[in-house]
Nucleic acid binder design. Structure first.
Length: 604
RNA sequence: GCCCAUAUGGCUCAGGGGUAGAGCACUUCCUUGGUAAGGAAGAGGUCGUGAGUUCAAGUCUCACUAUGGGCUCCA
């Protein structure tokens, strides 16, 4: 057996470790390297090494499960002591000591019955065993440490060198909120030192583009302890960015036949009872009493749009009727989940509701998916689609749900659009397609959504007169493209690391006049650019030219424009182009043409 | 909501039971400079909030609030 073989891939594609393989195995060898299979083995073994170290440091430690995940591995366990970030170093040190003992990792099998007896005093092991259907279970042993485990593991501890424990967290037993909370330690491991270094470096880079850090640096948005958690404030620069995004999207909606509407922020509680929100979504709603009547602050915009639809009689000729609103909604998210702009308690959705006939669903869904695609392409986002089906708390009959779900599937399948299924992840009133964007660190965030709803129109007696002169109930499609401005701008900020393209940059141009005598010229240019809806600033503070250029560059604006005697005389501008990383001179008219072209890139 | 951690001028951080420090930002003055930090002076903090321990609390303890990393949920 080669020194470097740590496992095999059998003909079913399963990983078999050296402990489990028989001597004459005829399978593809897994070498000790950074292949996904090798990392799976290495990381899982590192999790066990960590467990062994914890056992030595905390004699009363009991272990639940320690699997590998996309980003490394973790182990869930229970100790009497509190474990904090500081303790990770201690555990790492102990792990390195254990490696020096050069233990082999051995495997033996016992029956489940024997295992239940063996771990009789360990309630967590009993919980693990209760989830295993097999009659025979395997135990891995390294030194004195034994653990119930199905593997795979490296042959010996000497294969484990390049690891780092990354964070401590709490995790419910089996992910179940009603069960006890265990301590979880996450870690990462690689086959070589370089890869570990690269990984740590990548995480540091990701931190630098964190939207919370950039948002503070660029003065885009803020939070305020006295005002409350999850309630963002938009500062001037953030508002400018947001306004541009709203404007681009406003035009895109108008081109696609949507009509702007706006509903009230609070509605009587009875409205929410009729809609089902009170029963199905009540725990997320903020309620208040006015003149002894209960009101609810809207967590969604659909009810308002329904009222507007119902205000006048509608004919089949009016359908599909598309209302859109940048709707401000409030949702009581649990305090522990709030996260910068990505999860807040007040946010604005780019929300729309399409009232249509059942026959129109497929083509409307396709139109929306195309709309989503054009927005994602504009910003260069990778995204995936997921169809979410009926949740536990839901209104409406199963048949209606089945019909709506199938409609979504058909629309995507017929257009060869790939999707996955999220069982039970739908809204309480209908199934949906969720559009998830992958962010700079690889996390997926739900942004756009398309939801087919047969339920709310019926509950509110929404009707239109058909070709047959009979009354019919329309279908409602709820949809959002960005999802919310808050989350989308948060992701955009990380995506571009604050270097926004010209068409949405909060400050698009900074003028740096060489001396006071050039300020008037800069102001004149600035005013002309306002007509193009371009936001400019003039850096005419009493600082050196170098200092002002530096300060301007640090603002991450697309263009820094220097103007002095030469530029005033020639009616030109000296440009520092940050995106192209070049410096060049243009006449102001040429510059205007260039800017107009770049603004047009933001048309969809 | 739960587990763990953190909270010092606008920002980034140092200090660690005996009555607050740096850099940047800010203000004023000098400097009017052709592409990433010119110089000088000044102002600014009841050390997140509230209790407790102590002769004495930014410093120790507890609660709360907010933030961060997770669990769960979701745009």
């Amino acid at each position: 057996m080669s020194e470097n073989i740590i496992g095999y891939i059998d003909n079913l594609g399963n990983i078999v470790d050296t402990q489990s393989a028989d001597e004459n195995i005829d399978a593809q060898a897994i070498e000790y390297d950074n292949s996904p299979e090798a990392l799976e083995i290495i990381r899982h073994s590192t999790a066990h090494l960590m467990a062994q170290a914890i056992t030595e440091l905390y004699t009363n430690a009991k272990f639940f499960v320690g699997p590998t995940v996309d980003e490394g591995f973790y182990y869930d366990f229970k100790v009497d002591e509190k474990i904090g970030e500081e303790d990770l170093k201690k555990i790492e040190k102990k792990m390195k000591e254990l490696i020096k003992k050069k233990y082999k990792i051995e495997k033996y099998e016992i029956t489940k019955e024997e295992a239940v007896e063996k771990f009789a005093n360990d309630d967590l092991k009993q919980a693990v065993l209760s989830r295993i259907p097999n009659e025979v279970v395997s135990i891995y042993k390294q030194g004195d440490f034994e653990d119930l485990c199905q593997g795979p593991h490296v042959p010996a501890l000497r294969f484990l060198h390049n690891f780092k424990l990354t964070r401590v967290a709490g995790a419910y037993l089996g992910g179940d909120e009603t069960k006890e909370m265990l301590t979880r330690i996450y870690g990462i491991a690689f086959a070589d030192k370089e890869s570990l270094k690269d990984y740590i470096k990548m995480m540091e880079e990701a931190k630098k583009r964190d939207h919370r850090k950039i948002g503070a640096e660029m003065e885009l948005f803020m939070f305020n302890e006295e005002s409350g958690a999850g309630l963002p404030f938009w500062m001037p620069k953030g508002s400018r960015l947001r306004y541009k995004l709203e404007n681009i999207l406003h035009k895109a909606h108008r081109k696609r036949g949507y009509q702007p509407v706006r509903g009230p922020e609070i509605l009587k509680a009875d409205m929410w009872r009729t809609s089902g929100h009170y029963a199905c979504y009540g725990e997320n709603m903020y309620l208040t009493t006015i003149d002894e009547q209960e009101y609810g602050i809207k967590p969604m915009n659909c009810i308002g749009h329904i009222q507007i639809f119902k205000q006048s009689g509608k004919s089949y000729r009016d359908l599909p009727l598309k209302y859109y609103e940048y709707g401000v909604v409030h949702r009581h998210e649990k305090s522990g989940v709030l996260h910068g702009l990505l999860r807040v308690r007040e946010f604005t959705q780019d929300d729309a509701h399409i009232f249509c006939t059942p026959e129109q669903i497929a083509s409307e869904v396709i139109d929306i998916v195309e709309f989503v695609d054009s927005v994602m392409k504009l910003f260069g986002f990778e995204y995936s689609m997921e169809i979410a089906t009926k949740p536990e708390k839901a209104i409406g009959d199963d048949e209606v749900w089945e019909l709506a779900t199938q409609g979504l599937k058909d629309a995507l399948t017929e257009n060869n659009l790939p999707f996955t299924i999220d069982e039970g992840g739908g809204a309480f009133y209908g199934p949906k397609i969720d559009i998830k964007i992958t962010d700079a660190i690889g996390r997926k965030w739900q942004c756009g959504t398309v939801q087919v709803d047969f339920n709310l129109p019926e509950r509110f007696n929404v009707e239109y007169v058909g070709e047959d002169n009979e009354r019919h109930t329309p279908v409602m499609i709820h949809r959002a493209i960005l999802g919310s401005f808050e989350r989308f701008i948060g992701i955009l900020t990380e995506h571009y690391a604050g270097e926004f393209p010209l068409f949405i940059a909060p400050t698009q141009i900074i003028f740096v006049p060489i001396s006071e005598s050039h300020v008037a010229y800069a102001k004149e240019l600035k005013n002309r650019l306002i007509d193009l809806d371009i936001d400019c600033e003039i850096f005419d503070k009493n600082d050196s030219l170098n200092k002002r250029v530096r300060t301007a560059e640090k603002q991450r604006v697309p263009y820094v424009v220097i103007v002095g005697d030469e530029e005033v005389a020639n009616n030109s501008v000296a440009i520092r182009d940050r995106r192209a990383k070049e410096q060049y001179n243009l006449s102001f008219d040429e510059f205007m043409v260039k800017l107009t072209q770049q603004l047009n890139e933001g048309k969809i």
